[in-house]
């Protein structure tokens, strides 16, 4: 019978296992290896800068709290999507993202370009209770982030690891990581207080502020808000 050869294979576990492994490995090799070697050719866009120490800490909290389970950060090249969220996402924008945060769900809106959309105080209130701003929202309250002091004990190490992996931080940025984070926190807190918000001492150096710093950075690698959403792009490109 035609499958006699296979009968023989069924008696030989080692050959069988090797063949099965080869069968699954091929697809992976084709899909992963060429793009990996293209990695060098994906360069950051001119305006895309590594995260500051505080933004990186904020990003890690964003990851820790699973914001990505509800929010994507990947705008697709459709007119409606560009109109809603801004210019579609480009490969050169996520080069410093470890892990990537494209997401697979939009229980909430895309956040790829939320930076600059709202003032810091909006985010503060929204994190405290999203329903204060939007009664129909089902986003959880993240008020506890606004009362948790930001832990800076690993900040320097984080930047070091990022540099090892390829993010171009210089020595001064690594040396001054903690100081820079503290300075950015103080600036954010002062701004909020100046706007009339009541921010406690802990609130002024809280995890929530780090998250806000990160949110305000998102998608600002290209300067699109001042130019208008779709200018200079074929929005419905594909």
């Amino acid at each position: 019978m035609a499958h006699e050869w296979h009968r023989r294979l069924e008696a030989r576990q080692l050959t069988f296992a090797v063949l099965a492994f080869v069968a699954v490995a091929i697809g992976g090799l084709v899909l992963l290896i060429p793009p990996y070697f293209l990695q060098g050719t994906i360069t950051p866009l001119p305006g895309v800068k590594p995260y500051t120490a505080l933004e990186l800490e904020g990003r890690d909290i964003y990851v820790r709290e699973g914001c990505y389970t509800c929010h994507s950060q990947q705008i697709r090249p459709f007119k409606t999507e560009v109109d809603r969220y801004g210019p579609y996402s480009l490969a050169g924008e996520s080069v410093y993202d470890r892990p990537f945060q494209f997401g697979s769900r939009r229980t909430g809106p895309d956040l790829a370009r939320v930076g600059g959309k709202y003032p810091d105080s909006w985010h503060w209130i929204h994190l405290r209770d999203p329903r204060e701003i939007e009664p129909r929202s089902n986003m959880p309250r993240f008020d506890f982030l606004l009362e948790a002091p930001l832990d800076l004990s690993h900040t320097r190490k984080k930047l070091e690891v990022m540099r090892r992996l390829g993010t171009p931080y210089d020595d001064a940025e690594i040396e001054g990581a903690v100081a820079s984070a503290q300075a950015q926190l103080a600036k954010l807190a002062d701004g909020l207080r100046a706007g009339g918000m009541e921010i406690s001492e802990i609130g002024g150096r809280s995890e929530g502020l780090a998250v806000i710093a990160y949110l305000q950075k998102l998608g600002t690698g290209i300067d699109w808000r001042s130019r208008g959403a779709t200018e200079g792009r074929t929005a419905d490109a594909r």
């Binding site: 992963l32 190490k157 090892r164």
Partner: peptide, 21 residues
């Protein structure tokens, strides 16, 4: 790449991280 006992960063970034994931 570990930062501490509870935190690490992917050795891949952005689009490549997405591809592998």
């Amino acid at each position: 790449f570990p930062v501490s006992a509870f935190k690490s960063y992917s050795i891949y970034s952005g689009v490549h991280d997405a591809n592998i994931q």
